[in-house]
Design a protein around this nucleic acid. Structure first.
Lengths: 232, 232
DNA sequence: ATCCAAGAACTTGTATTCAAGTATGGTGTG
DNA sequence: CACACCATACTTGAATACAAGTTCTTGGAT
């Protein structure tokens, strides 16, 4: 498709940051990225600008650009935000539901069960499930806004799920939420979704104690200027 | 302060779009902006990129950049979003409140009453009031996210408030909400805030019927390539 | 007068160059 | 050996140059 260079670069870098391939605190060189990707600095800079706006990178003029460390307060805010929006969306649900959206959710749930051992793939499905749930209420554009604001939360989740694989629990949660929603029991669905969303958040502090160098407020100074990171 | 050119340009253009000085549907020329502002295209482009992400401008490669028309569905989504987040924030309120935040809100309310005839100034105060309310609950970073997603809603409000000056009503609403919150009657505060937020939204359809050319879905084609717009 | 065609004048996307400041590494000196 | 200092290689921000495509305009023919 006729994607612009900027967009491709943006998607690529963002995926690497969320997926922790680019470690929090690590340096990013616009020049090196440009060389590696075979494009000029212009689209790189524009992509970095967007990531800055999302809070995923920090730019220090004349010094360097760094992947932002995971900020617990940002994680908490993203948690508050997604909870507020997803629960509010759930409350606006009313049948009849769009059949295409339902079908998408059913298929998503099946795939979740099937590939529950591949954490990375599960994450993508999880993301799509929650988007689908909001789409069911016609609010998937609000999901986009939330999704763009929860990068720090996503990284915390990625850390958590790698250490304590709760994938099976998540799949069960998703199934229960979906069932309650289609059954029209919105109060139950809301209760289930709320507790589901809290599980991740409760793990963050524990993770932080295990890997303090990935979080802000750590005592160690700025990291190596040019960390080894792999493209593609 | 050592603001970057990009940031100044961004603020300037955004204010003009929200304030309707740059009319919805109107064209923007990067080159002309660069000439007018005395900077190169680079910071202009970066500012435009951010505005694109907010949905306030649309870029058609090799054709032109246009201020996006007001999109009723975006207005509705922003309404849903702000309502979900602001009400959820209100529910998390619990004393004791931060004295500085309280002081800010009190002073803001005084100023609102004082300059209620200047619509533009009132808008800024209104914005700060809602931010302050969320700051009272420690959620003002979530407000930033919402604020960045509600440009279309803001323009609709700007249209509405110009035609039907409800400023006095708004000031009364704000005062009542604040009082209920500090009195600890959160249920009442939530009820008041919910109905307050709905007032604007209910006006949108009426405004649309009066000025269809400012909204998407209007029959008229693309507007003049170079509309007269004033900078500063 | 009307219509068509060709070129001029725009548009944005990307690449390149210039500017200004910071961190580093090596060297000389005490 | 320790420390100060300077050249150098990097960093991002902004300006400029080039590429490719669209739209408007103008001149000419019918």
């Amino acid at each position: 498709m006729g994607q612009t260079e900027r967009h491709k670069v943006y998607r690529g870098i963002r995926a690497q940051i969320i997926g922790l391939d680019l470690p929090p605190g690590g340096a990013i060189s616009e020049n090196e990225l440009a060389r590696t990707l075979g494009v000029s600095r212009t689209p790189i800079r524009e992509a970095v600008l967007l990531l800055t706006e999302e809070g995923l990178v920090e730019v220090f003029p004349k010094v360097g650009t760094f992947v932002s460390r995971v900020d617990p307060s940002r994680v908490a805010e993203a948690q508050f935000l997604r909870e507020a929006v997803e629960l509010a969306s759930l409350r606006t649900l009313e049948p009849p539901y769009d059949e295409k959206a339902l079908q998408m959710l059913r298929q998503n749930l099946e795939e979740q069960a099937r590939i529950s051992e591949d954490v990375r793939a599960f994450f993508a499905l999880d993301e799509e499930f929650h988007r689908g749930l909001m789409a069911l209420a016609g609010h998937d554009s609000s999901w986009s806004t939330v999704a763009g604001a929860k990068g720090h939360l996503d990284r915390a989740r990625m850390l958590g799920i790698q250490e304590v694989p709760r994938v099976d629990t998540f799949v069960d949660d998703h199934r229960a939420i979906f069932r309650a929603a289609v059954d029209g029991d919105l109060a139950e669905a809301e209760r289930l979704l709320a507790s589901h969303l809290r599980v991740v958040f409760d793990d963050v502090e524990e993770i932080r104690s295990r890997s303090p160098e990935l979080f802000v407020g750590d005592a160690s100074a700025r990291p190596v200027r040019r960390p080894t990171y792999v493209w593609e």
